[in-house]
Every structure is written in C-alpha cells, then in structure tokens.
C-alpha cells in the first residue's frame, strides 16, 4: 500500500453504515482526526447513509473537497466515493471542469465558509450563476478552524477569535443570500443538530437537476465555542439566562438549536430579531431552469447544424 496512495477498494464491506466509510472499509473500524464534538463526523455519516439508503453509485458522484478541517472527511465518507483534494477555494471551478468534461458525472463539492465565501467567493457566485448540475455543501462553523481559530467572513458579530481578540467588528456574509442572488436553483440551510432535515435536503439535491447549495451550520468547539459565550445571537432578545462558555458538544448543539430560526418563523421577524441568527429551511427549489450542460448541448446542436 505504501508509496501509491490509498487504492480504490474493490469490495463492499459487510456492515452497511459503520463500515461503509472509507477507513471502516480499509481497517474495519471507525477513526477520525476530528476534535471531540465536531460536526463533521455527523455530516460524513449522514452522507454515507444517504448513498447507502438511496442505492446510488458513488462513482458517478465525485467528491471535490476544498481546504479546511473538513478535508479530513475523506476518511469517513462512503468507501467507494472518488475523492480529490483541491486547492483552497477552487473546488467549484474544478467541479465545473469535471461536469463539462463528462456530463454523466454529478460532482459533490465540500467546502467550508472560508473556502466558499472567502477565497473562493467568485467561483461560488459563478457556479450558482451557471446552474451547473452539482451539489455544493458549505460547512459553516463561523471560524477558520484548521489554521487555529481566525475570524472568517461568516463569524458572528461580536464573537471572539484569534484575529479579533476584542470582538468581531465586521458584518458577516450570508452564503444563502449570495446563492439566491446569483441564481442557484436549489438553496437550503440546515444544521448538524437537524440530521433528518439534512438527509432530506441532500436527497432532494441529489435528484435536483441544477446547482444545489446546502449550507450546514456545524459546531467548532475547540476554536469557536470555547472562546465565546452562548449568549451570542441573543444580543437583542434580553433573555435572562445563565450565560456560559460553549465548551462542550452538548452546549454547542443546544446553542445551534437555540440560535436557528425556521424560514416560516423568520418571515414574521424583523431585522433586529434576526441579528446573528441562522435562518434554516429550503429557500428555493426551482426546477424550471435549464441545467448548464443541457444548455451547452443546445449550443452544440446549433454549431453542428442540427437545430
């Protein structure tokens, strides 16, 4: 095995869920490098389950993985998914090439908030604009986790990080709003505290013929939770509660649940109430738009004189 990189496993393991992960398939056990309480384990397990439940062939769904903590998800996702680690922020562009090079493929892009909305913001916008058939996950933990907790474009106002030691003073970016404005045809946001919703959205996205953007709010305890109080997001609510640091998985998940607002509820809330809150739900599901490679096939027909 050494010297050639991990090989493509030929056989399917016996246990459908536990051992269908990559490392489970290789070693028959479960291991990861994530911190205790990290959300990426949940995400990768849900990803694998979706493929197992739907009976899809992961080979047709290449995984394009950006740079961030979630890069290590490669160990936990489905064993026969073909994965490529790309450069920081460039995953959407690479996925475009894969899809247009062979339109039978449906790329699945893993990217973080810094990856998709920071360095790769331009590629993200243009991926949405083209309506290319792919699924893009934005794992939003509101922090640059891998480099050790620097402020991200999505860091909540007032939060502390290593580069904003006093407090975050920039306004945060909303990936969903950008995706909607840029014209993605399936846009949804969920959290790791809502795993069934996640699976529902993912299944919809897999069936959707167009760009699907799913933002997932995921906890980062080590770099975000430990430094911030769980009153974050409640600045304008005047809730009289015990305020404590979010230094365990339970507290962080509770905070995520408390800090999210369903899209139906959000309609009746004003800007002040929604400040530093995450609105979750399906924002758009538009099946009327033509997918990019189909559009390009029409161009090919014109060029070849068939139309």
């Amino acid at each position: 095995m050494s010297g050639v990189g991990p090989m493509y496993p030929q056989e399917k393991p016996e246990h459908p869920y536990l051992e269908s992960s990559y490392v489970g398939n290789l070693l028959g056990n479960y291991s990861s490098r994530f911190c205790a309480g990290c959300g990426y384990g949940i995400i990768s397990q849900l990803y694998t389950r979706t493929f197992e439940d739907e009976g899809l062939d992961p080979k047709k769904y290449p995984l394009i993985i950006g740079i961030g903590c979630y890069s290590q998800i490669i160990l936990l996702v489905h064993h026969s998914a073909q994965k490529i680690l790309t450069l920081h922020g460039r995953a959407p562009a690479l996925a475009t090439g894969i899809r247009m090079g062979n339109p039978k493929m449906k790329p699945i892009i893993f990217s973080g908030d810094g990856d998709a909305l920071g360095i790769g913001g331009n590629h993200f916008v243009h991926l949405c604009r083209r309506n290319l058939n792919c699924v893009m996950f934005i794992f939003n933990n509101g922090i640059y986790g891998m480099t050790g907790g620097q402020a991200a474009p999505t860091t909540l106002f007032g939060a502390k990080s290593t580069t904003t030691p006093y407090r975050m003073f920039e306004r945060r970016i909303d990936g969903i709003e950008i995706a909607l404005a840029a014209g993605a045809t399936y846009v949804a946001r969920t959290t790791v505290a809502h795993p069934r919703t996640f699976m529902k959205y993912f299944k919809t996205a897999l069936k959707h013929n167009g760009t699907s953007i799913i933002e997932i709010i995921t906890p980062c305890i080590t770099n975000f939770g430990r430094k911030n109080l769980d009153s974050l997001g409640n600045e304008n609510m005047n809730l009289e509660e015990d305020i404590s640091k979010m230094d365990s998985a339970g507290k962080m998940i509770e905070w995520i649940k408390k800090n999210t607002v369903r899209i139906n509820q959000a309609k009746f809330m004003d800007e002040r109430e929604l400040f530093n809150k995450y609105v979750i739900g399906e924002f758009r599901h538009d099946t009327s738009q033509i997918e990019y490679s189909e559009q390009y096939n029409r161009i090919k027909d014109i060029a070849q004189g068939r139309r």
Binding site: P62, I64, A93, G97, I98, M100, G101, H123, Y296
Partner: peptide
C-alpha cells in the same frame, strides 16, 4: 466544450477537472 470562466484561477482548475474525467 469551450468555457469562458470567471477568472484565470477558475479556467485552469476547470481544465484539470476536465482532464481528470478523460478529456
């Protein structure tokens, strides 16, 4: 397929993406 990408970073990445699937 000829694609005009949003910038040079995207163009070269799309090129290696296409090369990965055999084009």
């Amino acid at each position: 397929c000829c694609m005009q990408m949003e910038d040079e970073l995207a163009s070269i990445n799309s090129v290696i993406g296409a090369s990965l699937v055999g084009a």
